[in-house]
Design a protein around this nucleic acid. Structure first.
Lengths: 253, 253
DNA sequence: GCTTGCACCTCACGCCGCGTGAGGAAGCAG
DNA sequence: CTGCTTCCTCACGCGGCGTGAGGTGCAAGC
């Protein structure tokens, strides 16, 4: 069985021109040609094209794709293993970016302005340590700068205030809850955790229980977030984290 | 506080040239210039750059990025929400690709050759239904073709045989296990499920319990995979699926 | 038998997102 | 004052195709 350019382009979801290009640069030379000089792709060519598209989608330059595919010590098994590894790595990367976006949103919610370093922490930044030193050495006093920026958040006026009011109301009720000695795993605290999640979902993004767990960790590990919650009542950040954990466990199963 | 090109390039992980380019095309015009004509980026510029890099990383052309960012009815909140949605969509997409890779590996393990449509199912293929009709109409008899291809797998000779031997041995023992009336949730069956997972992990890719669940579903839903296992013993595919499920549940908690 | 139409062919130029110099000025360290 | 670094502005080039332009091969309909 062999296929024409149009057919291959059809099920591979690429243009005929792309196939021509791959032929030109020797990346995918069809197994044969018809009498009239038309390209004829066989099954092996399709497999190869599939591989090509895979690596291309992950952003590899075509030249490198050729190297990967023509690597003699990489049998099909090794290829698939590599692909699988690449995919999981990419997924992890995206999840990091998602976490960063969540981080950014939380910062905005609390009126905290991030330092330049934090803004780009998910990009570039190949060598975090060296970078931090560099930053200190060259532009000095990053920490002091951060301090000075902490309250200079850019608001979006109108309904921002309504949101702030919600936060304040929630904070007062959580304060009362803790004053009453409610445990984090209790009904009341979990209800507050649930409200917290709903608040984020309506004002920002669809916040899953899993995403909320990520936030909860941040509330105790990041100084400023911790400060934000603890200013409502000392120990609130930690209490909230446990309440969120309990609430997520309840809904998770 | 304002920053020079070099500084911005530093923490954003881009080159100076890139910043120049963004200035040229009007995508990111620095807030001001120094006396000597040097670009000076302020905090708002950094925020914008962060956004730009985000969309760029997701593959948007710069022109479109400009549209997204200058969209007047998208406040910062909406931006973040959109970004979050894009990310989860991308993650889903990659997970689909991972599943497709797993699918391909299983097919190879069993010596099944996929049809062209299957090979590319994760790419292009915008309109699956229309595509299937088209394929039938134009290149007809896809099913018949698939039939003819089913045993024409390309082996990788040497250790391939050892792997096949492992599979055969596993199959015989599973056959015996079922003959002895062992239930899927029993120790013996779960041990076989675990061995199945290890087999894939050593010969192919790191197979998590979750990934194995995906495979298990495939074994009963895809005719050819089902056939493969049921040829060892009728009902084996279903039995195995339940054993895998039980084994995953045990390790999952 | 002739035209119409479609899918194929081969040049060849253009666009985007920068990389990569070239040539020069500004600013800071010794 | 001398260097070293960072900055500036052209301006050309490259990868990965898109997009014609102009021509061929083949099956269907007149």
């Amino acid at each position: 069985m062999s296929y024409s350019v149009g057919q291959v382009a059809g099920f591979a979801g690429v243009t005929v021109r792309t196939l021509h290009h791959y032929d030109e640069i020797g990346l995918l030379v069809p197994g044969g040609r018809s009498h009239a000089g038309h390209r004829r792709y066989d099954d092996a060519d399709l497999d190869r094209l599939q591989q090509i598209l895979f690596y291309r989608e992950l952003g590899f330059p075509l030249e490198e794709v050729a190297v990967l595919l023509d690597d003699p010590k990489a049998d099909p098994r090794a290829q698939l293993r590599r692909q699988h590894e690449l995919l999981t790595a990419r997924i992890e990367r995206l999840q990091q970016m998602a976490a960063a976006v969540e981080h950014a949103m939380e910062a905005r919610r609390m009126g905290i302005n991030l330092t330049p370093e934090e803004k780009f922490e998910v990009f570039g930044d190949k060598d975090p340590e060296a970078h931090a030193e560099e930053a200190e050495r060259r532009w000095g006093g990053t920490e002091a700068y951060a301090e000075s920026q902490r309250r200079a958040a850019t608001y979006t006026k109108d309904d921002w205030q309504r949101m702030q009011a919600e936060v304040a109301s929630w904070g007062e009720r959580y304060d009362a809850l803790m004053a009453a000695g409610e445990p984090p795993s209790g009904e009341a605290a979990m209800a507050m955790a649930e409200e917290h999640r709903r608040h984020i979902s309506t004002w920002f993004y669809e916040c899953t229980y899993e995403a909320q767990l990520g936030l909860a960790d941040m509330y105790v590990s990041d100084e400023r977030f911790k400060e934000f919650y603890d200013s409502m009542r000392p120990g609130l950040a930690e209490h909230l984290r446990e309440a969120i954990t309990a609430n997520a466990a309840r809904h998770g199963s």
